[in-house]
Design a protein around this nucleic acid. Structure first.
Lengths: 184, 184
DNA sequence: TTGCGCATGTAACCAGTTACATGATTTC
DNA sequence: GAAATCATGTAACTGGTTACATGCGCAA
């Protein structure tokens, strides 16, 4: 079974917007707070090669402004389909617990791939899963409070408040899409 | 250079509190929302073996209530020292960006290792780094707003609000420690 | 001519994932 | 005697980290 790593999808998401060289992508990762991916060549170049081997991107050497030749990668139709399939997957509780960063990454490129409609639907699903999970965390905290030191309780509390902030963000974002639809 | 993985430190943190078998630790990871570690045997048993090889824990076989023998692990003085050194490290911006989960894990066991005083100091450092980082994120969002689709802006906004929630949590937690000091 | 910024890569290493193997004891 | 639970482990694979290697063009 051939799977794509989170880094792979991040690359696909960026390449869906426009073609980039490996070096460009490294700069993007090092200069912007996207996801927190490493900008090391040992991560990005092998990842691009894997995507190419699987036909999701295609790199062609282009001699840029007199400098050293750069290999510019473009996403293929197959790559675009793979990206959209990944973004469109249903959200389950386990994603909330273990893959929050992945969910945000899926959403980040969504306007330009699946469109505003689907992005809104994603946010509604996200909010639904969050609002069903948060009470179970609260319950866990209440029932195990006595066994935990203050720092442990607070660490758990931090997680809960983080989820609550995400939920609030999701609701505000849905409203933002609604407002934009009225007057574009 | 011998380093300890995040999972390794999580195990040390739990074993600092009391001895556990590998199976106990698996159950803890699968039943509680700690960090989001895997409860798979392929992760935990090798991690325990590595800790033992480096003298940070010691496992002894104890025939429990007639069931199959269990190997119970205890933290060693060297393991305890290593745990405390890790928890006591200075917080830098890169920790905020790339290792937020690690920071929370460091804090979660802190009452029982470094004490309430040091835990409070940790929270103050944490709040200081957060409050210096958040404005740079806001700036980044403001300056790059035009190039990003709505979903991209919102994803970044989500990160910022998450950090703000953490900051608020840290301040409340500091206050909680203060209050507890007055009347224990 | 030294060094820096652009640009691409490779190799050794390591930890986590998945899946499988094993074995004892209790319960139905 | 079949199944469930307790309990420990191994092996193949994969992807990211770190560090190193290389090569071009330009400016000091």
């Amino acid at each position: 079974m051939e799977t794509t790593s989170l880094l792979g999808y991040a690359l696909l998401g960026l390449l869906h917007h426009q073609p980039f060289s490996g070096y460009d992508l490294r700069k993007i990762f090092s200069s912007s707070p996207i996801g927190g991916f490493s900008d090391s060549p040992g991560a990005i170049y092998p990842a691009l090669r894997r995507l190419q081997e699987r036909g999701l991107v295609r790199g062609v050497v282009e001699p840029s402004n007199g400098l050293r030749k750069r290999r510019v990668f473009r996403i293929t139709p197959k790559g675009s389909a793979s990206l959209k399939a990944w973004q469109g997957k249903a959200i389950v509780r386990d994603d909330i617990i273990h893959c929050m960063g992945e969910l945000l990454l899926r959403f980040a490129f969504m306007d330009r791939t699946l469109g505003a409609q689907r992005a809104q639907a994603f946010l509604r699903e996200f909010a639904r899963e969050l609002s069903s999970y948060i009470p179970t965390l609260r319950l866990h905290l209440d029932t195990h409070e006595s066994e935990m030191p203050l720092s442990g309780r607070l660490a758990l509390e931090s997680g809960i408040q983080g989820y609550e902030a995400q939920l609030q963000w999701a609701r505000e974002s849905i409203a933002r899409y609604e407002r934009r639809k009225k007057k574009p």
